[in-house]
Amino acid sequence: MNAPFAPNRISPLFDEQAPHAAKWTQVETMQTVASFGSADAARLPLAGIGDLSFRRRAGVKGPGAAAWLNALGIVTPERMNSWLRMDDGTLVLRLGNTEYLVEDAPGGSHAAQMNAAAPAHGVYPVPRYDAALVVAGRNALELTRQTCAFDFTTLSPAAQGLAMTSMVGVGVTAVAMESGGETYYRLWCDGTYGGYLWATLVEVASDLGGGAVGLESLGRLAQQ
């Protein structure tokens, strides 16, 4: 492991990634794997698993949550279990009826703004220590079929639906997105289960010709 800096945030996947990491970087003050090796670029088109836990995120729930977020300038999805991307790249997920997960684009400040603002009546902060993954490649759908009973084909990027389901026994929030005409998936789970989810998905992905992919090879997927 080579970590020539002192980050103040650690990925929930660190313990699983550290033995395999070839190169580290620091993003949003979180130590993150830049590369797992020369195979990263070849894995991504097949079944690449990437770590986007470094993104800043915050959550709130309660009957006043939507109005409170709107007052902070955060647009909220109208439908339950759906998501939207704001003009500045911020992801806003509506989990069920009155819970919201806000994930900043790189350099964004909405999460910090939410954490600093006092909750209003009927607004309850939800601490988020998620492991955030991206699953991409032409075998990504097959990977979900081997690890989850939920049919990911029902998650079209255009419809912007969201599913909370169980993947290899871990509760995950899943959405489908699109980049360059290719569908890929974003997953969020409780960080304490992240290592197990990561290790299991990477193992299944390796059977499909893919595996762990560092930030350098994720390219646009890490920016969206």
Partner: peptide, 17 residues
């Protein structure tokens, strides 16, 4: 597979409940 329908999240395997 046994199924259960959540009023919010729809029909899912019973293992999710």
């Amino acid at each position: 597979m046994k199924l259960m329908t959540c009023p919010i999240n729809g029909t899912r395997p019973i293992s999710e409940f």
